[in-house]
Nucleic acid binder design. Sequence first.
DNA 1: GTCGCTGATTAGGCTATCCTAAGACCGTCT
DNA 2: AGACGGTCTTAGGATAGCCTAATCAGCGAC
Lengths: 218, 218
Amino acid sequence: MGKLTQSVEEYLEAIFKLTRDGTPATVGQVADAMGVSPPSASEMVRRLRAAGLIEDDRANGIDLTTDGRAEGARLVRRHRLSERFLVDVLDMPWDAVHDEACRLEHALSPEVEARLAAQLGNPRTCPHGQVIPDEDGELDEEPLRPLSALEPGDEATISCVTEEKADLLRYLASLGLLPDTEVAVESVAPFGGPVLVRVEGAQYALGREVAGKIMVRG
Amino acid sequence: MGKLTQSVEEYLEAIFKLTRDGTPATVGQVADAMGVSPPSASEMVRRLRAAGLIEDDRANGIDLTTDGRAEGARLVRRHRLSERFLVDVLDMPWDAVHDEACRLEHALSPEVEARLAAQLGNPRTCPHGQVIPDEDGELDEEPLRPLSALEPGDEATISCVTEEKADLLRYLASLGLLPDTEVAVESVAPFGGPVLVRVEGAQYALGREVAGKIMVRG
DNA sequence: GTCGCTGATTAGGCTATCCTAAGACCGTCT
DNA sequence: AGACGGTCTTAGGATAGCCTAATCAGCGAC
């Protein structure tokens, strides 16, 4: 696998994330994820297919080949290791590290990646709780539910936040809604209304949208 | 100063290094340093001039403006901090870090740069002994001579190595010719012949070329 | 079966960056 | 002076990205 350009890597990573759930992606999703026009995404998908990173049969939508998936996992690994480094070593706030990591991940060689992982104690998750793929690109995730899917009375532990927008992360941190925190759902308003949660003694009303981005286990 | 592309940053850094000694650079030197053809270098110089990073008067050769110099110094700073990080924190060998740092330096934001510097204890030099510019782009260098300029009987301390090719660095490390090591010149063969040096009890014959890349103080 | 929507692709263009080949410029040597 | 050699720039062309506008393809609604 020759060196890929930064741009190609970014597409690959985006497609990896889009197809994580097993369902193939569409050109439109890729375009949205990358913030480019559909023709641009279409063109890049064509190239990734030619490079053997995307499955050849266009009938089933966009899906990565084994090679493509491995490369994508490696990028996600580097991204999350970078975030871990920025938080654990450089002491940066968790809402700032995603953007930084987007740039860093493309600058890490396999050698640096390996040493960084070792130095960090081979962390299992990024600061937002998402699992870091191992060196072979394997990603062992336990089944999670969005907080918005819980019923009143349910208790669970926050596992990760699936969106890394700085303002959302700052908001969640201000409420103490961090990975590995216990939450209890008190009530769920009908018609997509707010979810009332109790966390560390305090009670907050979370918009359904926001609650959908918080994944819990247990 | 808007975001510069990686390519532009690389040119800027190369020109910064070429003009470190006060003499302006030529298009040919830039082309050589970047490993591109003269027209490519010429074109980029034109653009850097338009961007106000290179002095306007083309008569005196290529010289950076105050802005250009500041930007160049910041890049050198990031490069050398990256090297320091790779050696001090990730424990990489000194001959491997230059290439890694070339990629890393473009991925560091001012914020990360500052935290990294602090975390490393604000190092004064990179692992090869070269001075790291401070946050304002100031570079306080003491006057140095190449080892090849010493006379028999002279003693000095190695300050830095000016070329970062992996094989040269491995060679020097194998002889113990590292920054801050004492060396004594025993003899200098005529007609560009080898320089006989004593270092930590041992004696080695260094090619004049190689000796010219080792800068000493004292 | 055809209309029309949605999503994907083709067409045609722009910029940045690279190249080679061909001029232009300039100082030197005869 | 005039030819020569080195250095720089212009010309012309490639590729990777990106864009908009227009076309095409599939599919549900009538």
